[in-house]
Design a binder for these strands. Structure first.
Length: 424
RNA sequence: GUGACUGUAGCUCAGCUGGUAGAGCCCUGGACUGUGACUCCGGUGGUCGCGGGUUCGAACCCCGUCAGUCACCCCA
């Protein structure tokens, strides 16, 4: 029988990496709390319809990347490819949105059936933040500041660049799209296959083509900025002013268009060149029409999501992986002293519940147990032996070159050990 | 979905133009240190991704398939 293995693009995260993940999650939680956002949790599965109506029927995500299937009732369900749709559905369903302001965050796995590559997997973790009921550019600026705060917290700020753009309202984009299509049609002989395919279905996507020939052609093309409303422009200008005031550097990237249909007005991405092809670490923007589009009362909104795997990759490549918390104490247990070791360990854990204490199990000679203590990076070892226990003492050894070695009575051991562990 | 490269012990890899598989690390037994490391001796562990084919004979050649990596596409 063939060996069972993980589904393609769905990765196991092993102990060597989980401490990095935990540190990342902790940092995110700190920042999000600092800004007064509240956690919301919602299912991994939703009606397929929810994603089709929010993300857009003709987007790549919906057309070819969703994990969809019929359940036993014949309902067509999909694993969530992103978080915003489910978040909006949940918040609206429970009346959190109407005439209210909400600042929400979530985290969890998302699923897209794409070809895996560096920084892109079929199951991936996102941290997301969504703000409802605030129409001004101040909330957009707040979201961006929140993300910038996280980069500082993770010490990766210098490796990230903020790009922003104003993509206007959907009607305006439609008008611009028509103009763009007309322009490109006039130069159809210069279009690559990809651009030709998108010419009528989604012309805006041609804007961020990586093909230099396309970019050259686009240099003379109509500009989206000329099609967006005055109101939208002034919103964008205010956002820029707020960012400058907050000391957040940004680049306006007129080619920045997002792949989900629900965005409008200002959108942004944090990008890095330290991850290869998948340089976008965080992306978001306003989506003022989405709640209504999904059947709720009109509710303005903005938010973003970031990819946890990409952040972990960044931490690793930039050598910012936080240090693991070391094992505090390893109890070396000669054969026959299991009971004594168990009692001692219980006492010590009760005395210092925050410390990591491992009591050796499985026997073996003291020498190899001590070796294990060293290789685990433990700070101290207790060496039990029956003669010592008869006299009511244990030996404590500091596990580093030239470390101290002391004999402690069983009574004073907890206090003595705690003192040593606490003085760093 | 397309393309390129890769797939040999738990890990990192070697294996010349095809002749029945090796090293280091790890783990482990012992010697030696009262209690790790360094040194010495010994040991466990591989259907060479999988399935076909060519051949007297394939880890090495051919085809297929699966998986990994990176890129395109797209996005977090």
């Amino acid at each position: 029988m063939a060996k069972l293995q993980a589904i393609r693009g769905m990765n196991d995260i092993l102990p060597a990496q989980t401490s990095t993940w935990q540190a990342l999650e902790a940092a995110f939680h700190r920042v999000v709390n600092r800004f007064g956002y509240q956690e919301i949790r919602f299912p991994v599965l939703e009606q397929t319809q929810l994603f089709k109506r929010s993300i857009g029927e003709v987007t790549d995500i919906v057309e070819k990347e969703m994990y969809s299937f019929d359940d036993r009732n014949g309902d067509n369900l999909s694993l969530r490819p992103e978080g915003t749709a489910g978040c909006v559905r949940a918040a609206d369903q429970h009346g959190l949105l109407y005439n209210q302001q909400q600042r929400l965050w979530y985290q969890g796995p998302m699923f897209r059936h794409e070809r895996p590559q560096k920084g892109r997997y079929r199951q991936f973790q996102q941290f997301g933040v969504e703000a409802f009921g605030m129409s001004g550019p101040d909330i957009d600026a707040e979201l961006i500041q929140l993300s910038a705060d996280l980069w500082r917290e993770l010490d990766i700020a210098e490796a990230l660049v903020l790009q922003i753009n104003n993509i206007g309202a959907s009607a305006e984009r439609k008008a611009f799209g028509a103009a763009l299509t007309a322009y490109l049609e006039a130069h159809s002989e210069r279009l690559d296959d990809d651009a030709r395919n998108r010419l009528y279905s989604n012309p805006l996507r041609i804007l961020d083509s990586k093909n230099p020939d396309m970019q050259a052609l686009l240099a003379e093309a109509p500009v989206l900025a000329d099609y967006v409303s005055e109101e939208s422009v002034s919103h964008f200008e205010e956002l820029k002013a707020l960012l400058s005031n907050a000391g957040v550097a940004f680049e306006v990237n007129p080619r920045l268009v997002r792949g989900l249909d629900y965005y409008n007005n200002c959108v942004f991405e944090w990008v890095t060149d330290s991850l290869g092809a998948q340089g976008t670490v965080c992306g978001g923007g306003r989506y003022d029409g989405l709640v209504e589009q999904l059947g709720g009362k009109p509710t303005v909104a903005a938010g973003f999501a970031m990819g946890a795997e990409r952040l972990v990759l960044m931490l690793e490549t930039l050598d910012k992986v936080p240090q693991q918390v070391p094992t505090s104490l390893y109890i070396v247990v000669p054969n026959g002293l299991a009971k004594e070791a168990q009692s001692l360990a219980a006492t010590l854990r009760g005395e210092m519940p925050e410390q990591r204490i491992i009591s050796h199990c499985g026997g073996g000679k003291p020498a190899s147990q001590l070796k294990r203590a060293f290789s685990l990076g433990a700070r101290y070892a207790i060496l039990l032996d029956s003669e010592g226990l008869d006299q009511g003492v244990v030996r404590l050894r500091e596990l580093k070159d030239g470390g101290e070695e002391a004999t402690l009575t069983l009574d004073e051991a907890p206090v003595q050990i705690a003192q040593r562990l606490l003085r760093a």
